[in-house]
């Protein structure tokens, strides 16, 4: 397994000018970058980050769109994978942080936590490239090649859970803007808003 912070740090070295939807890696990503092209949305409704990233990638084909999704989101909206594969945006890089649990609700295991092959599901759904990683060294070594080749690509990474047990209302808020403010900022930066 990997630490999400290490994985995010490895990606940061290769980010370039990509739009980054930080998703479940948000509180680590904000330590590296906090511009209008960094899109911390929180959790508007679980399972939807991949759809948002798909829409953004289709709308901005000239920019790489990178998403840090989770296995819980994938399980909740697995039907999005064929839609992504069918649309096949070459600029979409779909990373999944698989910690095997619902970390924000106390760490209960997700169904099939030890048996689901997420890359296999993505491949069977039509992603032309899909792979699983279990160790940071292998991930770090493969990352430049992953980002240099066209998408859509699905990269599932086993990470240690970072379980939160504090009641939601008492948690420290790391996001500085609301989700709607983030979208407005992105549209401004892209010159479409």
């Amino acid at each position: 397994m990997m630490h999400t912070a290490d994985l995010i740090e490895a990606f940061a070295r290769h980010r370039g000018d990509a739009i980054v939807i930080s998703g479940r890696g948000g509180r680590h990503w904000i330590q590296h970058s906090d511009t209008a092209l960094d899109i911390p949305l929180g959790d508007p409704a679980m399972g939807g980050h991949a759809g948002f990233a798909l829409g953004l990638a289709l709308a901005q084909p000239g920019k790489r769109v990178v998403l840090f999704d989770s296995e819980g989101d994938i399980l909740m909206s697995m039907g999005q994978l064929p839609t992504i594969a069918e649309q096949a945006p070459a600029n979409f890089y779909h990373f999944v942080l698989d910690n095997e649990v619902y970390a924000t609700t106390g760490g209960q295991p997700v169904p099939g936590s030890k048996i689901v092959d997420y890359a296999g599901i993505a491949r069977s759904s039509g992603y032309p490239r899909a792979m699983n990683f279990y160790e940071i060294d292998a991930f770090t070594h493969a990352l430049p090649g992953i980002l240099d080749a066209p998408g859509p690509v699905f990269v599932s990474c086993k990470v240690y859970p970072e379980v939160e047990n504090t009641p939601i209302g008492q948690r420290v808020r790391w996001r500085k803007k609301s989700a709607s403010e983030v979208v407005r900022g992105l549209r401004g930066a892209l010159g479409v808003g």
Partner: peptide, 18 residues
């Protein structure tokens, strides 16, 4: 889409991108 709720996040991403 394969489930109507997916349409919402996809539409949001499309709008965010112009």
């Amino acid at each position: 889409v394969t489930r109507e709720g997916h349409a919402c996040s996809i539409a949001a991403g499309l709008y965010a991108g112009g």
